[in-house]
Amino acid sequence: MIGRIQQLGRYGCDLLEALGRAGIFLGLSSVGVPSREGWHLWLRQMHFVGVLSLAIVLVSGLFIGMVLALQGYTILVDFGAEQALGQMVALSLLRELAPVVSALLFAGRAGSALTAEIGLMKATEQLSSMEMIGVDPLRRVVAPRLWAGFVSLPLLTVGFSVVGIWGGYLVGVEWLGVFNGSYWGNMQESVDFIADIGNGIVKSLVFALVVTWIAVFQGYDLVPTAEGISRATTRTVVYSSLAVLGLDFVLTALMFGELG
């Protein structure tokens, strides 16, 4: 019994220590002086985490928008309120689905790749040798990735929303015959730029920071063996998914709580 409590305590201390390390890590790597070289490294990572994630995010957005319209239509038509389809699709995408689903896809596509890449650099002593050459790997390797993730996820989220709303239009208007004017009209009436679109983007900024942070930290902090890399990659996906879903609840409560 005592042993178990001890173990719990030790686990707690370990957790706290890891959090502290992750915090220091974030602090050290995010304060980089922007330079021409840094700009180039950032661009390269934008390509890696942003452009290469575009396809999966857009295709998922299209299908989710189409499914939303299809499901929403069958429910709304019972109340004779199928004109509200545009509003429903747009609000659920902008407020919830686009930030959350993009972040989850991003964690799976880009986050795990970041962890594995940095982990491999650590395992092959590239990070150590960089340090010995006198270059801080936090600035050279971690910072560009962190910033690229932070910038690209919100852009991906916007893309997700746009494609999703278009998918809803395809199914709702082109296929199920909702009046075109009421699809867009109802949407414009109910969507507020700051409260809905703005808050959605704030959400995705928070998710971007958390997911990228978890991914690069897991890569930097892992045990440099093949097994360590595979474990850290799994941890990245699991932790960032949980963090995204948990934070989403908190943020939703803060943003839309009193509107309810």
Partner: peptide, 28 residues
């Protein structure tokens, strides 16, 4: 980091940067 510029280290695996070619590795 300034002191490390006066040192060189040869790692067991070489630890070349895998995203740069030989020339760029030495130029780094």
């Amino acid at each position: 980091f300034r002191l490390r510029r006066r040192m060189g280290m040869l790692f067991q695996s070489g630890a070349l940067f895998s995203d740069l070619d030989v020339y760029e590795n030495v130029a780094f």
